[in-house]
């Protein structure tokens, strides 16, 4: 085997080994935290697909780098092989990278995007209005006539399609529940929307990613502008909502504005 051929074979073998190692690693380590919404499955699918595609690309460049550094390292300057271009390789690189870019645009890009778009056109089971305020969230369940100012917790029913209407009372905020995966800005003077179907009973205490976190820098209290979310069985949710609606008329069933300004709904004042 000529030296030239051996270089190609060994680098190719190194590439294959790195790809296998890479695939094994991403299969055994779950990079993404627990998913708790139907729509978020598209996000995870896109992420995992891209992760898989990126392994051979990363491994290829890494293999060439590693092999070259080990194989052709010199201590004193020495003339290298005067190769200016290998047209077949350069064209191949260009065509493969163009094809890859086209592929990821179509899937997971467009396919995931269209799936999310069509999911958003289906009729929701529940409407929730959220207003971002420096630095807390106000929550309204308009169908039940319940409006809560800076509640300590947001309740949602499991397996029900929830349509959030988002706006802001001051600066730009953003809706993000990490366990649901979706993100949408809340913009003053506009109403934006987001549809999410929580898949299972869960709570902030069990999983800190079940929280409504402001994701757009909104000033000093931005970090603490989150409120725990609790996803409960639909029956429990209905009972709670009915109770809250009665509470709205009379005494203290509302979930309590505590007048926090810095600590957000979460209530840990860090002063």
């Amino acid at each position: 085997m000529s030296g030239r051929r051996r270089d190609l074979v060994v680098t190719g073998a190194l590439w294959v080994v790195l790809v296998i190692v890479g695939v094994l690693v991403v299969r055994s380590v779950d990079l993404l935290p627990a998913l708790r919404s139907e729509e978020g499955a598209e996000v995870d699918l896109a992420f995992n697909t891209l992760l898989l595609y990126s392994i051979p690309v990363f491994a290829f460049v890494l293999a060439v780098l590693l092999y070259s550094v080990v194989r052709w390292r010199v201590d004193e300057p020495e003339t290298g092989d005067q190769i200016r271009d290998v047209p077949a390789f350069s064209w191949g690189w260009f065509l493969v990278s163009t094809a890859l870019a086209g592929l990821i645009f179509v899937t997971p890009g467009l396919t995931g995007f269209f799936a999310l778009q069509s999911a958003a056109t289906e009729e929701p089971d529940l409407e929730v209005r959220l207003t971002g305020v420096q630095w807390h969230w106000d929550v309204e369940y308009p169908e039940a006539g319940v409006a809560l100012e800076a509640p300590q917790e947001i309740l949602l029913p499991a397996d029900r399609r929830v349509r959030f209407e988002l706006t802001s009372a001051d600066v730009i905020h953003a809706f993000w529940v990490p366990a649901f995966r979706l993100k949408q800005d809340a913009i003053p003077g506009e109403t934006t929307e987001l549809i999410v179907t929580p898949t299972e009973v869960s709570s902030y205490d069990a999983d800190p990613n079940v929280r409504l976190q402001c994701a757009e820098l909104c000033g000093t209290g931005h970090a603490r502008m989150y409120v725990p979310v609790r996803v409960v069985e639909p029956a429990e949710f209905e009972a709670w909502l009915t109770g809250a609606a009665m509470g709205m008329g009379g005494d203290g069933m509302d979930m309590g504005s505590d007048g926090m300004d810095m600590g957000g709904n979460a209530g840990h004042d860090e002063g």
């Binding site: 780098l65 070259s68 550094v69 003339t79 092989d81 260009f94 990278s97 163009t98």
Partner: peptide, 20 residues
């Protein structure tokens, strides 16, 4: 794609070079 061409040039340059 054009960003990839910068990588093409980089890895092609070190391949079979004498890396000082």
């Amino acid at each position: 794609v054009p960003t990839g061409l910068v990588f093409l040039s980089a890895v092609g340059t070190i391949w079979r070079g004498r890396l000082w």
